[in-house]
Design a binder for these strands. Structure first.
Lengths: 255, 255
DNA sequence: CAGTGGTCTAGACCACGTA
DNA sequence: ACGTGGTCTAGACCACTGT
């Protein structure tokens, strides 16, 4: 009865999971489904939309609907910490290890700190900050948008306020200013993108984004940078390494 | 022309962002939209579906469509490390701090290790493992599914193989066996759930999930536990704290 | 029982990609 | 030029919620 589009989607989904339809393959099109299942075109359309909505398929208007490919980039949050101790790690999701995103469209300007950012930086609302926006691209495809905020009074006169931050980047400049970041907090959540975001990242419909807010602290616990990132969830696997040096006790790890 | 459902969604979205429609409020229903915009009922339906698909609204058949509420749980991955140094941290997303999920439906059994898990644990394919499955619930709603795998030869005789692992939990038992986990790697990705997963977590349509795979290592770099978690993305904010003790250099942080 | 969202049909027009 | 997905209409039936 009124369950048809789901069932069609189920059938196709099974064929994807079984491997009969491999990543990149073309799915049966709407006209085919109309004939095969004896349904209206719109029902076939909705069946395909379900799969697209699950992120299993991508629709290319004028061409067809295809099994989605998942070739994520691995983002290791601890990249700048000692790598030796973690060498030889195995991972659950394979990833094109050497697909490093390229930074493009760098934009730097001074502005008033948004409320939330001011709070994180310990500034008064509306205090001046240097804003650095940039876009990360892999194989022509945008995969991440990032916006950093730094206290203008701290970095205005340094290369942090320039498009090219020089050798070592922002953190090297901060170190020269006696404000080297050594501790970081990252907060993240996943959600569906807004229409704007979907366009900015050129996302297929049905792909979630990961929103990350990172705050960088000096050894003296002073927050010196807040970065907000928006990642195409279909393009990333995130990795975090936690060292429990003084791990004494023992709550549930997974709460 | 054929842009109507998007425009209706745009209108309503704007009203949500402006605050005119607050979380929990009822959206205009299909019949209302049909009259207001002079469209077919199905078009009104699709407009609402767009908002649901973005995670902005939740449809309750028979009742109405409502602005979604986002009251996330905060999961701090480093919870068992020294908290002192991170005290007084501010955060970007407010969260019901003291909403600790309850563990229910614990299930423990011995089985052959799945391929991927065996790899991570450094075991032969098909080697015996103790499997611990559990479900986390907040206010009657399931928010997380977790499955842990431990080498059976290591923990079979301990309370890890029992439903109740005793005081201090699994990690305390591992410590007693001379295999205390001190280092952890978490890999995560966000994606849309399968139909099964959507039912298990009782997810509204259009809500992504976060999949986490954590591997726990002893001081000797021996992997002793692999945990796979599936979180309702709408219910969680994840927090990671990174200490860059010996942070010498300075690549782009955000790659 | 009236109102709601969920789904289906049968036919139509459009913009786009591919050949 | 043809086939593809994308969308709209007008009317229908269903299962569910709430009064």
């Amino acid at each position: 009865m009124p369950e048809t589009s789901r069932q069609i989607a189920d059938d196709i989904r099974a064929r994807i999971y079984s491997g009969e339809l491999a990543p990149g393959d073309r799915l049966p099109g709407e006209p085919t489904l109309v004939k095969q299942y004896g349904v209206a075109k719109m029902t076939a359309n909705q069946a395909l939309k379900l799969l697209v909505g699950e992120g299993l398929a991508v629709a290319r208007p004028g061409s067809g609907t295809y099994v989605r490919e998942f070739r994520p980039i691995r983002r290791v949050a601890n990249d700048r910490l000692d790598k030796s101790r973690w060498s030889g790690g195995k991972s659950i999701w394979s990833a094109d290890v050497e697909q490093r995103p390229l930074v493009t469209d760098v934009e730097v300007y001074e502005a008033e700190a948004p409320r939330q950012v001011a709070r994180l930086l310990g500034l008064d609302a509306g205090a001046p900050v240097i804003v650095r926006r940039r876009r990360f691209v892999v194989e022509e495809r945008p995969v991440q948008l990032a916006t950093s905020f730094l206290p203008a009074d701290l970095v205005r006169s340094s290369a942090v306020a320039q498009r090219d931050t020089g050798p070592g980047g922002t953190y090297a400049r901060l170190a020269e200013l006696g404000a080297e970041p050594v501790d970081f907090v990252e907060e993240l959540r996943a959600r569906m993108p807004s229409d704007d975001e979907r366009q900015d990242l050129r996302l297929a419909t049905g792909v979630p984004v990961v929103e990350i807010c990172r705050t960088a602290f000096t050894a003296g616990r002073r927050p010196v940078e807040v970065t907000q990132m928006l990642l195409d969830a279909g393009s990333y696997v995130l990795e975090y390494r936690l060292s429990g040096s003084g791990a004494t006790s023992a709550e549930m790890p997974a709460s």
